[in-house]
């Protein structure tokens, strides 16, 4: 019996609870942060308070741009809580896709059937991509929805660009997790690699922005590639988006190649 993309279907539909959970979390974060903009980000008192904070701190948190609607959305939602939730979701899914499945002993039985290893990696990666894109699309829709009531004044084309970068940034961590999991056959290594990409990217950005001496760190930060020019305010750097998505695709290819060459479950 032939069903199209049987492994993708299983990876995508059998994890709907998890997808729904992360969607709820992102929605809650969006509804929590954005409606507060008129009373926090846009108020003069808040600006005074932020001015009073150490400059290093506001830079590290990207709060230097919080006074405008797009800047506020960029700093709080896309740059912090949304980034965190998306990265965790993506890394978790990526690490489970191949490495976790092998470690739990289930990959062996799947591979004993009429599927190729490359197919297993590609279909599961497709499921990861689609789930991340769905979450990014959800956030896009919710921000559009709140745009007027929260007086954010975000231009739709900028928001779209930010969504593409938001998804790409999470995918980079997620595919790093998938790749490390596929190479090692261990979920933990996948989690570690994915978390390292996410956390180091964030830290390099925060530190790199502090002074010219350490500015070079910004070049190593996927977070900075994506958000360096505040896409919600200024539109996407499409070159950066290309890099994020391109490297993610390359990591998937590498994972497929690695799994295809080694013993499974040994």
């Amino acid at each position: 019996m032939s069903t199209t993309l049987p492994l993708f279907r299983r990876a995508f539909f059998d994890t709907w609870r998890s997808t729904l959970g992360w969607a709820a979390g992102l929605a809650a974060a969006t509804f929590l942060y954005l409606p507060l903009y008129p009373s926090i980000g846009g108020s003069a008192q808040m600006q005074d308070m932020i001015d009073a904070l150490p400059a290093e701190m506001t830079k590290a948190l990207n709060y230097d741009q919080i006074a405008t609607g797009p800047g506020y959305t960029q700093a709080t939602l896309y740059g912090l809580i949304g980034f965190l939730l998306m990265t965790i979701a993506s890394v978790g899914w990526g690490a489970a896709a191949v490495g976790g499945d092998e470690e739990s002993g289930q990959l062996e039985l799947t591979l004993a059937h009429g599927v190729t290893r490359v197919q297993v990696v590609l279909e599961r990666a497709l499921s990861l991509f689609l789930r991340v894109v769905l979450l990014a699309a959800l956030v896009f829709v919710l921000v559009r929805l709140l745009n007027d009531s929260a007086q954010l004044a975000i231009r739709p084309e900028n928001l779209f660009g930010a969504a593409v970068l938001f998804a790409g940034l999470a995918l980079l961590s997620g595919t790093a997790a998938l790749c490390a999991g596929a190479v090692s056959g261990r979920r933990t290594y996948g989690l570690a690699a994915g978390a390292a990409v996410g956390v180091l990217g964030y830290v390099f950005n925060a530190v790199g922005r502090q002074s010219e001496d350490v500015e070079w760190l910004l070049n190593l930060s996927p977070y900075h590639w994506a958000y360096g020019n505040s896409p919600v305010a200024n539109g996407a750097d499409w070159g950066a988006a290309g890099w994020l998505w391109g490297i993610s695709a390359a990591l998937v290819a590498l994972a497929a190649l690695a799994v295809n060459r080694r013993d499974v479950g040994a």
Binding site: P6, L7, T110, G114
Partner: peptide, 8 residues
Amino acid sequence: HYQAISGP
């Protein structure tokens, strides 16, 4: 699922 990836 396994039916979808094995023989008829």
